[in-house]
């Protein structure tokens, strides 16, 4: 059963799926990892992005071109959501954030169910089934693009946080909210900006996902716990950690699916999640939690 001829393609396949997980998790790293906003609506917001790209495709816009629309659109949605709902309703308590984002995700998801019905939808693109031969295995083109995009996105986010004034302000707010406010930083604005940037990442992830995945109101469920797993596994707030964590999770799922059967593939993810939380809550690359 452990024949490399089967294992290697499965691992590579998992790696490309992992890139998709990393794409979804990168936004959460900023929201949950840096600012500790436990965003349960992350999956539903991805779903919004997917439906956006899906309807744009109906009007003849290529999903990769839709990036130009969906990224700013989801940024705006995230900014407004954090500024007007989550920030105000949470009264600064972690548990309230948990509940508010849960409530928001229930509303968003079921609005989609109400308007778009539960049917899963897919789009047809000429390159959806295009394969690239990388020597040891055939890899689908959209997945390869997703892999490249996740690397690029991680780099962009890192630059944003490490090198820009906005990034400096975000880090200041994450470390010491009151101190940041005293230094003249508009904390509510920075929170909303971070949330917006995190959701904008989902806009990008949605456009890159659409050619190889399906859309349904409940698609967020597939990703939300996986995204938390990736963030916790990679280490809170570490973009490279999220990237590596995502790839690792993808490979784990693929190999578990191969060894235990398709339906048990996801169980590997959740067991890793539980084990990480229990034994190494600071993640693989994070600094130790105080």
């Amino acid at each position: 059963m452990l024949d490399p001829v089967i294992l290697l393609p499965a691992a590579i396949n998992g790696l490309t799926m992992g890139a998709v997980y990393a794409l979804v998790a990168l936004g959460l790293t900023l929201i949950y990892g840096v600012l500790h906003i436990i965003n349960f609506a992350h999956g539903s917001l991805l779903m919004v992005g997917l439906y956006g790209a899906f309807f744009l495709h109906r009007f003849g816009v290529d999903p990769y071109l839709a990036l130009l629309v969906m990224v700013p659109a989801l940024f705006a949605l995230g900014y407004v959501l954090q500024w007007s709902v989550i920030g105000r309703a949470s009264h600064g308590s972690d548990q309230n954030v948990l509940l508010v984002t849960l409530g928001a995700s229930i509303v968003i998801e079921n609005l989609a169910l109400y308007f778009f019905s539960a049917d899963t939808q897919t789009i047809d693109t000429p390159y959806a089934i295009a394969m690239v031969d990388i020597g040891v295995a055939l890899v689908s083109l959209p997945r390869l693009i997703a892999l490249g995009a996740s690397l690029a996105l991680a780099a962009i986010l890192w630059l944003l946080i490490a090198r820009t004034d906005l990034g400096r302000a975000i880090r200041a707010v994450a470390k010491e909210r009151q101190g940041a406010r005293l230094m003249g930083i508009d904390v509510d604005h920075i929170f909303a900006m971070s949330f917006g940037i995190g959701t904008a990442c989902l806009g990008a992830a949605a456009c890159l996902l659409l050619p190889m995945f399906y859309v349904s109101p409940h698609i967020g469920h597939v990703f939300v716990l996986v995204a938390f797993t990736v963030v916790v596994l990679g280490g809170m707030g570490s973009f490279s950690g999220a990237l590596i964590g995502g790839l690792l999770i993808g490979v784990t799922e693929s190999l578990c699916g191969l060894l235990l059967g398709e339906s048990l593939g996801q169980i590997g993810i959740f067991l890793i999640f539980i084990a990480t939380l229990l034994f190494r809550p600071s993640g693989l690359f994070g600094s130790r939690l105080s």
Partner: peptide, 20 residues
């Protein structure tokens, strides 16, 4: 489908916002 859940979710947000 989903209608009562929309109300549940909205109720949750409203409760936490105004009547914690």
């Amino acid at each position: 489908p989903g209608l009562s859940l929309i109300f549940y979710g909205a109720l949750l947000v409203i409760m936490v916002r105004f009547l914690p």
